[in-house]
Each structure stands twice: as structure tokens, then as C-alpha cells.
Design a protein around this nucleic acid. Structure first.
Length: 922
RNA sequence: GGGCUCGUAGAUCAGAGGUAGAUCACUCCCUUGGCAUGGGAGAGGCCCCGGGUUCAAAUCCCGGCGAGUCCA
């Protein structure tokens, strides 16, 4: 019995004559108004009963259902909130995709550090869950993309006062269940059929009681009461084996699946037909799928049983399908050939919606992060489309969903899909060639292609084993894919992950007040006075804490200030500045003394350069978005003194033309000399006005955030900036390079650094011009001509060497006769090409060539033997080379070798005839 | 972020320490009235870049650049 059992004894249940029951099938505890009920109502304990028998008074489209839900909660005192992007990594670094509405408020709101945008609130949040990907299309109810409708209330215990960004209780369990119940009733549901299953929730270090809400076999909502946090000494032990204790904040976290509610209202065989009717029709027609009335009936009946098709719960797909076929009394293969294409079409519609969300919200395909997930989904979708025989281009299919979802950047989305599809096609072509080659190798041998090769093909070249099998079979080779294929692949990646220590809160700083940040008040000042609050000794040097400071601590990609802190008699160099929990630590070489009055002086020149680069970063970012597109987002940035780098998301290489245009637009903003403004608005107002693109460099905590306006560009930013764009002076883009797939780095310089960088580039050009003895403008043409001439000369030299060699051979150098074979033994002191050519020419005349050279600081030999002469050239070279302290070898008719002992070369050549005789007689 | 694979002729690839190759494409010649085609000849290479090992590196080692792919 759960220790949380008492948590579920709600007044609301008692007042409304609910009873607590235990499911006769699965043993779960649940609450119901129906006193005769025996099962919990959730598959597999019960089947869907709403198919062809809708559970609400009216049919709703997805749009209508969303509106109905949100306005219901608005009428019940909730504020409606706009949805967040599906790319959750835009505001948190612990997850990639938004998988639930509560993700929008983690970690800053749930921890109480930042107030929610409204309290209570309701929202319909687009989510993507990759975990269910294998179920999509097959179970009739799983989708990868979905909207989680939700109402949330953020509560804090009375006794903690206003320590958190919200206080007191808005509402808790009874009101939550009551609202849920009322929503059902307002739609005309038969509330006696609803079951509320007790199902404690645990996840991500938090936990709490939770209730699954089941109606006619479908799980329509989950009501989570997040109220516990992990604590080794906590009073509750939950199903994950950890102990938990109550938190100061407690949060109503609900989830109502928009698609399921829509489905429930329509009672179609699958959720997909309820939510994407137009797209399903289009895909069916395009794929040429038509059903007879009998088949249609069979599909309906199978759909009701499809709840069993869940690869998590059923042992495997095959068994589940078998099971359904038996219940319907039809042939399994018949059922399969009927259902498969439909399942693919359902999955395509769902995947296209997921892709529309991802690309619409600015995810760029990549080999890492969310971009990789998007790439996987796209490729999977492409395979499904090809499989089922749909000839519409993928970008059009994704666009159908993007249009429905109301995205405005549809052209970019289509461009991304096309680019990505092209890349995939190339990978498939490359892979196909590779597999055919391997298949041909094994086709003759009768052996199957080894598992090791399959793993290699998948891991290194992205070729699915199924594809290998297909191609191999065409070529007459066999393939056996082991069941544990993917775990074998995983085994190749079992290296341990290195963890970086998170900055731990420093106890020493707990009692110190936050340092007053003068650098935000006047960004041009470089001197200030302060009091030393404390000094901590470090291994090397000291950490000095002041009451206020002009020193900018490292952050937001901007390096820390340098300078000095001085009292009357001590001057300490500030070598680094860091910030911990709002306290600025000045790392110095000397101790100014606790309690002293000090004068601080920052290195103004250094700071000016950094400020120029920081403001320039905003300008370059803005210019890049204007030139390339709205999907451009900051993926990292580092400011410097000589240059800065700015990483942006983009799905192609940035061209030279684009660089020039970005540079032009950026410098236009500089020349416009507009003021750079900072403001500290309420965060939610700022988000309302400017959207999530504010947070290019991460999300700051707190009720108010600092915004920097540069021309039309607005960003949340903690850095220091120049007063007007004209103060930047000039911006010069130095280079662009790929950081990873989907991320391009723009390296640029601002102000005097831009001039310096340009001068360096010019110096290089002038130096080259001087060497070529032409004007800088003529350098490219001249270089091209020289390179062509250089290549031509190389060929000319080769020709001449060949002629020289022939001439030498014809001249008949000292020729000796060894056992009837003419042999030329000669020292040439030429390079190895020439030796080779000469030897070849001699061989053409039927002579054995033994040539030596001392070119290049070492002794070298070439020995060449004509056809029909029984001398092993390799052996001759080996013996000669041994005399000069080296080695050599080669095929029997041609060999090379040498050694370091140049002085012994002549002696070795003198002995060559003996060597030849020995080898000949052997 | 980490692992793995690959950079050789315009394209696709072979060569795996010892004289840089094949196929297609290209140029020219022959066959034809012209084309498809057939026969022959030729041109085309900083073997990605930089170090190292070696008598000798396209080949082995290290570093870089570039492309691809899998995993988190």
C-alpha cells in the first residue's frame, strides 16, 4: 500500500459519492462514482468504448477543442498563456525538446526564483516525445507531436512568507479534480464512466501524488501534484526507490492531451483521423489506398483492439497483431497487409507535424542536439513516404502541417526540408554504392555479410541494416541481422561521459551582500571608490570582495576586466574577476586589507575594445538574420580584444557573397550611429513584446531582466556596451567556419582591431604581390598563371628526364658481360625519378641496370632487370644497400633501396658485379 | 560534447611502404549519308595541408583542414 494513499482521500471525492476501488485486472487503486465498477478502465484492462460512440455531445476539430479548453479555464479564473517553442534547450540545458507544459516553467518558476507569467494559468503547449516513436501509427493513439493542454497553479507554503517569487496557495488537489470533472461535464460526458486512478508521479528529482483520468478506455488527463523533492532523509519512499520530503513550493501540474480529447469527441477509429482528416485523405489518395466496405468494417473493429499494439507492453508487435487477428477471426497476414500502409500514413502525418514544429521553431538539422533528433525524424519520415509510395515532395507534406499550425516562416521550413532531403539522398547513394560493393564480395563466397560489417555500415555510414539486406539480396548475398543489433552498436559507444562540476554555492559568500554593479550605471567610467568587505586567500593570490565595483566579471562570453585596486600604500593587480551568487570576486596578487577604502581603476583601453566587440556582436547577429533568415540564432559567442567569434545556427555553409552582405549591413548600422539603450523591464512584459528570441545567450533568472537595444535588435544581455553604434568604428568579418553540422562560426573584428586585421590581410597580399613582382590586383591572375606554368614545367621536366635517360642508355655506358647478360653498372648522382627512367631505358634495350646515386645526402640504388633474365632485383638491391648501411627491396624485375653511408657508395658499386654473379648463381 | 569512417584524374573508386591505376566523362582519329553505336589514340594528378618515422610515404604515426555518420 502506497504511503501516499492518504493523499488521495479528497473531500471532493467524498462529497460527490465517489468510492475507492482496486482494479480486478491490474490491481491499481482508483476512484469512481460507479459503485459497481470492477476495473480501472485503462487498456489493457478494458477496451476503447468510444470508437463509433463519441464520448461528448458534439464533435470538435483540434482547433475547436483547444479553444473550448482554454476558454473553459479562462472562465474559471485562469489566464491564457501563449505556447513556448518545442526546442526546450532554448531556455534550459537539461533537456532538448519540450515534452510537457510544465517544461515551460522549469527550473526558474518551479523553484520559486522567478514568478510565473500568471497564476493560475492555462496553456496548450506543443510537445514532442521521441520515446513513443515506434508506437506512432500502430496503436491508433500514440503521436510523437502533440499539444498538452494544461492548467497550472503555483503555490508556496504560508509559513515561508515571501521568500519565493510567489506566495500562498492558489488552489490544490480538490479544486484541480473539481475543475477536471466540471470540464468533462460541460462537454456532456457521462461522469459516472470516468475513473481517477491513483498513480504517484516521480521524475527529475521531484515527485508527488498524481491521478490518471480515464474515460471510455482512453487516458484523457493526468493531474500531478508536485510537492516532494528528493531527500535522503525524507519521510516518503517512492517507486523509484528514493526518499522524498515536502518542498516549500507545491505546484499543480496537469496535462490534457488535445488530440485525445478531439478523438474522444469524434470517435474515429484512430486519433490520427480525428486530428489530421485532410492530410490523411490526401495521403491515402496519393498512395492509391482504397478500401471495400468489408475492409472498412474490419479496420474499425481492429482499431478498437489496437490499444494492445504497444511495443512497451506487448512482448512484440507480431504477437500483438496475432492476438488481434485471432479475436477478429481473420488471417494475420491479411490484416497486416491491410493495416501496414495505413499505419505508415498515420505516422507520416504525425511526423510531418513534428517536423513543422521543430523547423518552425527554429531548430536546424545537425549531427548534434535537437538538430540531430530533427534529422532522424526527417529521415524516418522520408523512408515511410517512399515505402508507402507517396510521390509528393516531403517539403510539401511538412508545409501542409506548418500551414495548419500557422507558422510564418514556411519558406525557410521548406528550404530546410529540401536541403536535408538532398543530404539524405546523397548519403543513401553513397551507402548504396558501398553496400553493393560489399555484397558483391560476399555473393560469391556463400558466407553472409558479417555482423561486424553491418555495425560498421550503420555506425560510420548511417546505413540501416534493412537497406543492406535489400541490396544484398539483389546481389545474391545473404544478411542476418542479430536481434540485439542496436545494443551492439551502443556497445561501441560505451565510453564514460566526463562530467563538469557545476559551480557550487560557496558558503563563505553566504553572509556577504550582493556587490553593487557600477558597470551598468555608467559603462564609460573607469575609476571608482569602494570598501573592502572581505578578502579570501587563494592558493595563489586573493579574492577581494568590495561593496561596489566597476570591474565587469567574466560572463556572457565577455572576458573579465583587468586593472588595479589601491589603498594609500598597496596597489593590487586585478588578474581576473568572477561572480558567484551576485558577489563579485576580484582575483588579485596582493591583499589590500579587509575594511580598507580603496580606489579601483580598470584597464580602460581593454574594456573599450571589449565593449566595441560586444555591441558589434549584437550588430553582426542582427545583420546575419537580415541577410540569411530568421532561423539564425546564437549558438555561442566569445568576445575578445583582437577578434570575436559568433556561432549561429544555419543549415548550409555561409557563402562569400553572404559574408560581404552581412558586413555591409553591419557597417550600415554602425554608420547610422544609433543609440544603444539598456532597460530593466518585467520579464513577462519583455517576453510579450519581443518573444523568446530575446534569449539568444541563455535565460537569466529574476523578475526583471536587462535588455539591450541596438537598432531594431533587442536581447537580454548582461554585458557592457558602447553608447552609440558609431562608437564601434568599423566591423570586419575575418572568416567563417563550420563548428558542427548546422552551426557556422563568424569571426569578426571591431574598431581598431578591425583596422589591424585588415592591415594584416593586406600585408599578406602585398607580400605576395612583391614576390610575384606585380600589383596586388594582379596577384590572382598571376598566381593562376604561375601555377599553370609550374605544372607544365613539371611535365616538361619529366619528359626531359625520360629523354636524357634514353640518351644515356643509348650512349652505352660501361657495359660488362656477366654470364652472357649485358649489365650496366653506373653512378649517376641524379634523383630517384631519373635513376628509374634511366634504368627503364636500359631494360628496354635488354640490359640489366644497376644504378647508384648520392643525391640528397643518402646513397640510393635502382636495379632493373629485363624479362627472361634470371636475376632477382630485390635481392641485388638488398645486398648493395646493406653495404651503405640501409635496406631496400621491390618486385623481382625492379627494385630500389639505399642507405645513409654515402662514402661507401663507390665501393658498393665496385662490388656490384660480384653481387650479381652471386645472385645469378644462387 | 564523444566515438567511428573517408579525403587519389571532372565523377565514381582501386592501390595500403618500392615505376600512381581502372571505369565513365572529355579531346582527336577511324567506321557512317547523319545518329545510336563500334574500333583506336590522347589529354587530364601539389595522391587535402603541415610535421614525423624510413634508404624510400599516396600508403605508417602525430597534428590540422574538409566531408560523412552514430551516440548522449
Amino acid at each position: 500500500m502506497s504511503e501516499l494513499e492518504s493523499e488521495y482521500r479528497l473531500e471532493y471525492f467524498e462529497e460527490n459519492d465517489f468510492v475507492r476501488k482496486e482494479c480486478s485486472e491490474c490491481g491499481a487503486h482508483f476512484w469512481t462514482r460507479d459503485h459497481d465498477r470492477t476495473t480501472c478502465g485503462e487498456p489493457p484492462c478494458e477496451e476503447y468504448s468510444f470508437i463509433d460512440n463519441p464520448g461528448f455531445d458534439d464533435e470538435y476539430t483540434m482547433e475547436e477543442m483547444r479553444e473550448t479548453f482554454l476558454s473553459f479555464f479562462e472562465e474559471h479564473g485562469h489566464a491564457r498563456i501563449d505556447p513556448y517553442p518545442v526546442a526546450a534547450n532554448r531556455w534550459r540545458d537539461d533537456v532538448l525538446l519540450t515534452q510537457a507544459s510544465i517544461y515551460d516553467f522549469q527550473p526558474l518558476v518551479t523553484s520559486g526564483r522567478t514568478p510565473p507569467p500568471a497564476n493560475p494559468l492555462c496553456i496548450s503547449q506543443p510537445c514532442i516525445r521521441m520515446q513513443d516513436i515506434d508506437n506512432v501509427g500502430k496503436t491508433g493513439r500514440h503521436t510523437m507531436a502533440f499539444e498538452m493542454m494544461a492548467h497550472h497553479a503555483f503555490n508556496a507554503r504560508e509559513e515561508v512568507g515571501d521568500r519565493y517569487a510567489y506566495s500562498g496557495e492558489v488552489y490544490w488537489k480538490d479544486r484541480t479534480v473539481e475543475l477536471c470533472d466540471e470540464l468533462f461535464a460541460s462537454l456532456g460526458a457521462d461522469v459516472t464512466e470516468i475513473t481517477y486512478i491513483e498513480d504517484p508521479w516521480v521524475g527529475g528529482g521531484n515527485a508527488g501524488p498524481a491521478i490518471e483520468v480515464i474515460y471510455r478506455g482512453a487516458e484523457l488527463a493526468t493531474l500531478v501534484f508536485m510537492s516532494l523533492e528528493q531527500d535522503p532523509e525524507g519521510e516518503y519512499e517512492l517507486k523509484d526507490g528514493n526518499r522524498y520530503s515536502p518542498m516549500d513550493t507545491y505546484i499543480v501540474d496537469t496535462g490534457y492531451g488535445l488530440e485525445r480529447w478531439t478523438w474522444m469527441s469524434q470517435g474515429t477509429p484512430t486519433v490520427y483521423e480525428a486530428v489530421y482528416p485532410d492530410m490523411i485523405d490526401f495521403l491515402k489518395e496519393n498512395a492509391g489506398i482504397e478500401h471495400t466496405d468489408d475492409e472498412e468494417t474490419l479496420i474499425h473493429r481492429a482499431a478498437k483492439l489496437a490499444g494492445h499494439m504497444d511495443i512497451d507492453e506487448a512482448d512484440d508487435m507480431d504477437a500483438a497483431r496475432d492476438n488481434i487477428a485471432r479475436k477478429l477471426d481473420v488471417n494475420k497476414h491479411e490484416l497486416e497487409s491491410l493495416m501496414r500502409p495505413l499505419e505508415d500514413i498515420y505516422a507520416i502525418a504525425d511526423h510531418c507535424r513534428a517536423l513543422a514544429y521543430m523547423f518552425g521553431d527554429g531548430i536546424v538539422p545537425s549531427n548534434v542536439g535537437t538538430g540531430y533528433l530533427a534529422r532522424m525524424v526527417l529521415r524516418r519520415t522520408k523512408r515511410l513516404v517512399d515505402n508507402v509510395g507517396i510521390d509528393a515532395p516531403l517539403d510539401e507534406l511538412v508545409d501542409m502541417q506548418a500551414k495548419r499550425l500557422g507558422y510564418e516562416n514556411r519558406d525557410t521550413v521548406r528550404d530546410i526540408v529540401r536541403t536535408e532531403e538532398r543530404k539524405y539522398r546523397k548519403t543513401l547513394e553513397r551507402g548504396g554504392r558501398r553496400v553493393r560493393q560489399i555484397a558483391d564480395e560476399y555473393a560469391g563466397s556463400g558466407e553472409p555479410i558479417p555482423t561486424e560489417t553491418l555495425i560498421e555500415l550503420y555506425d560510420s555510414h548511417g546505413i540501416q541494416p534493412d537497406m543492406v539486406r535489400e541490396i544484398a539480396e539483389e546481389r545474391g548475398a545473404t544478411v542476418q541481422v542479430p536481434d540485439d543489433f542496436y545494443s551492439l552498436v551502443a556497445a561501441r559507444h560505451d565510453s564514460e561521459q566526463a562530467f563538469e562540476d557545476a559551480d557550487r554555492a560557496d558558503d563563505r559568500l553566504a553572509d556577504l551582500p550582493e556587490t553593487e554593479k557600477l558597470y551598468y550605471e555608467d559603462q564609460d567610467r573607469s575609476e571608482f571608490e569602494a570598501v573592502v568587505l572581505d578578502v579570501f586567500e587563494r592558493e595563489e593570490g586573493y579574492d577581494v570582495v568590495l561593496d561596489q565595483t566597476m570591474f565587469y566579471p567574466e560572463g556572457g562570453g565577455q572576458p573579465a576586466d583587468r586593472g588595479t585596486i589601491s589603498t594609500g600604500d598597496v596597489t593590487a593587480e586585478v588578474e581576473d574577476v568572477q561572480i558567484r551568487d551576485g558577489v563579485v570576486l576580484h582575483r588579485t596578487d596582493r591583499d589590500p586589507g579587509k575594511g580598507e577604502f580603496v580606489r579601483g581603476q580598470i584597464d580602460a583601453n581593454r574594456r573599450r575594445r571589449l565593449m566595441r566587440h560586444h555591441t558589434a556582436t549584437h550588430v553582426v547577429g542582427h545583420a546575419t538574420r537580415q541577410v540569411i533568415g530568421d532561423h539564425i540564432r546564437q549558438a555561442g559567442a566569445q568576445k575578445g580584444l583582437e577578434s570575436s567569434r559568433f556561432d549561429v545556427t544555419h543549415y548550409e555553409r555561409i557563402t562569400r557573397e553572404e559574408v560581404k552582405e552581412i558586413e555591409r549591413v553591419a557597417n550600415e548600422i554602425v554608420m547610422d550611429n544609433v543609440p544603444v539603450k539598456q532597460e530593466w523591464p518585467d520579464r513577462h512584459e519583455a517576453e510579450e513584446r519581443h518573444g523568446f528570441d530575446l534569449y539568444q545567450g541563455g535565460i537569466p533568472p529574476g523578475e526583471k531582466i536587462r535588455l539591450i537595444h541596438v537598432a531594431e535588435d533587442v536581447q537580454a544581455c548582461g554585458g557592457t556596451h558602447v553608447r552609440r553604434t558609431g562608437d564601434i568604428g568599423a566591423i570586419k568579418i575575418l572568416n567563417t567556419e563550420p563548428v558542427q553540422d548546422g552551426v557556422e562560426r563568424i569571426v569578426f573584428a571591431a574598431g581598431e582591431a578591425a583596422i589591424e586585421a585588415t592591415q594584416r590581410t593586406e600585408d599578406a597580399l602585398y607580400d605576395a604581390a612583391e614576390v610575384l613582382d606585380v600589383s596586388p590586383q594582379e596577384v590572382p591572375d598571376t598566381a593562376e598563371r604561375f601555377f599553370a606554368e609550374w605544372k607544365e614545367r613539371g611535365k616538361q621536366i619529366d619528359r626531359l628526364k625520360r629523354e636524357l635517360a634514353e640518351a644515356r642508355a643509348a650512349a652505352g655506358a660501361d657495359e660488362v658481360d656477366i654470364d652472357g647478360t649485358p649489365v650496366v653498372i653506373q653512378r649517376l648522382d641524379a634523383d630517384s625519378d631519373e635513376l628509374r627512367a634511366t634504368a627503364n631505358a636500359l631494360v628496354d634495350e635488354g640490359k640489366v641496370a644497376v644504378l647508384g646515386s648520392a643525391r640528397g645526402g643518402s646513397a640510393q640504388f635502382v636495379v632493373s632487370v629485363p624479362d627472361g633474365v634470371n636475376v632477382n632485383a630485390g635481392e641485388v638491391v638488398g645486398r648493395l644497400a646493406a653495404k651503405v648501411g640501409g635496406g631496400g627491396g621491390g618486385p623481382a624485375d625492379f627494385a630500389q633501396g639505399g642507405g645513409p653511408d654515402v662514402d661507401a657508395l663507390d665501393e658498393a658499386l665496385d662490388d656490384a658485379d660480384d653481387v650479381l654473379r652471386t645472385v645469378l648463381n644462387a
